[in-house]
Nucleic acid binder design. Sequence first.
DNA 1: TAGACATATGAACAACTGTTCATATGTCTA
DNA 2: TAGACATATGAACAGTTGTTCATATGTCTA
Lengths: 118, 118
Amino acid sequence: MPNTIDKCEVHCIHPEQVEFAQKNMLNEDTAQSLADIFKILGDNTRVKIIYSLILQELCVCDIAAVINASESSVSHHLRLLRTHKLVKFRREGKVLYYSLDDEHVETLINQGLEHVNE
Amino acid sequence: MPNTIDKCEVHCIHPEQVEFAQKNMLNEDTAQSLADIFKILGDNTRVKIIYSLILQELCVCDIAAVINASESSVSHHLRLLRTHKLVKFRREGKVLYYSLDDEHVETLINQGLEHVNE
DNA sequence: TAGACATATGAACAACTGTTCATATGTCTA
DNA sequence: TAGACATATGAACAGTTGTTCATATGTCTA
């Protein structure tokens, strides 16, 4: 009974399927969070950083050497990955060792690879 | 014996781990393809389009109604999703019905949701 | 405590992306 | 064949993003 749906400003051909889809739709926040995660993974450099951390932890300058990027660039990316809980780090003296924070990340990467290699 | 590694322009602290990581690193093309897939998924509107297609096929204007976006915007996004083989369509008269092209996509979305909802 | 070193941070800029508006294409029906 | 309709496409513009360069922070050692 409550008419939460549109006010007829939008034209659609199959009102029932539209209503069904809307009932099952992600809420705005979830959709945004989901897009944000993928956005983080949607960069060449970050993909390589994450991939380099699957097998072992590495310090910043080693990551930079592995993926052939500047340390500054890597550091910026690591901050982003950190704030989104994709990587964590431990300090040992001056050196920060980064590693993956979440087993989901590796799963996502592998799932993506399956799509790429199909 | 072959010295394919750097020419010492990059400083790194743990040469062995770096070399190990480089041996296992994604090649440039794969990394780029992987990033490209995630980039596609890294947009609010596209996430919602894909999600709306998990349960049923929908035509363009219905998708637009479901996610509350303009038909033009949806059409642009669908083209992108099409060229990357994430959705396919069938024509019925004037109407184009879109659906997911690949079961990997749904898996990726669900895996992403797990990360978001942890 | 000074200097070296590993890393972080901020500002700036070019490159890229998503939306909108206008217009084009392709299909149906009268 | 003309007109309505569903969708596609192109151009343009604002907003976002990744890199670089310069500088700051924090830790160790002499």
